[in-house]
Amino acid sequence: MSEPLLEIKDLVVEYHTDEADVHALNGISLSLDKGETLGLVGETGAGKTTTALSIMRLLPKKIGEIKNGQILFEGENLLDKTEAQMRLIRGESISMIFQDPMTSLNPVMRVGDQILEALRLHRPDMSKAEQQKKVDEMLEMVGIPAARKREYPHQFSGGMKQRVVIAIALALEPKLLIADEPTTALDVTIQAQVLQMMSDLKTKLDTSMLLITHDLGVVSQTCDKVAVMYAGEVVEYGRAEDIFLGKQHHPYTEGLFGSLPELNATAKRLSPINGLMPDPMALPEGCKFHPRCPHCTERCKKEIPAVHQDGEHMIRCHLMDKEVR
């Protein structure tokens, strides 16, 4: 098999605050092949965005620290790169779409110029005319008339702004696109438009994608692989078929599914997960999920569960000891 495009190995990230150290990521490992889409799912505080920022090396300086691990992109460890080298990689090879289209654009710059900015920095050998032509092309590609490039962000609706952000992210045809909740701020009909467009562009430009979301519906329809995160760990990882159709699941994944009011189900009561996400400053010992887990045993409170692998499907839970194999 070919080498994966992106491979994260045992990544540990901490945030240092005045009060205590926040354990944001506690040894996560993931890999993403060329052309694939990997979905990162989990609730607020699970470490999804921290994972994305670590790959981009955009963690807040001084506060965020990568304690351990490797992030291999095309076989090279991004954590060994200098800031100058990283600048060449950002946008060029890896680019990112942020959650909130309202705040990720510069309000006092014309949208065309914001796309142009990426080209000017990374494609200095292109002539001005060529750059402008590329800007027009990018706008048309995301479904915005090129004539609107001289307008400012406030003249666009939320869905249109997110299209502009996507145009900027894809202007340099990156190999990896990180999309952090790209459609959370949008209405469903607009979300459908944007997702459709992203998947079309992904095929056209042969880009791999890391899609961060909390919407399992979006994941099931767009991702090839899924990683379920909880309290800075990947608790379940596998192909979409394993996660959505497989029989074995981590209790947290089951809880997530039980929480969803499904359109085609008629259950009167939802079965939510009890309790709350643990405080990342004081994570529980043993399995991080044990205080909320309906199947918790004495062992779960003490021992960190080992990884159980079944083909590509990985579950991190003591329960699997007797069941898998």
């Binding site: 607009i190 459908a192 519906g217 099931s220 329809q221 959505f244």
Partner: peptide
């Protein structure tokens, strides 16, 4: 337009509403 959990729809076209 609602993304329901259904992996058989993966890769298929969404029926999207045009315009805003």
């Amino acid at each position: 337009a609602i993304p329901v959990i259904d992996i058989t729809r993966r890769g298929k076209k969404w029926e999207t509403l045009q315009g805003e």
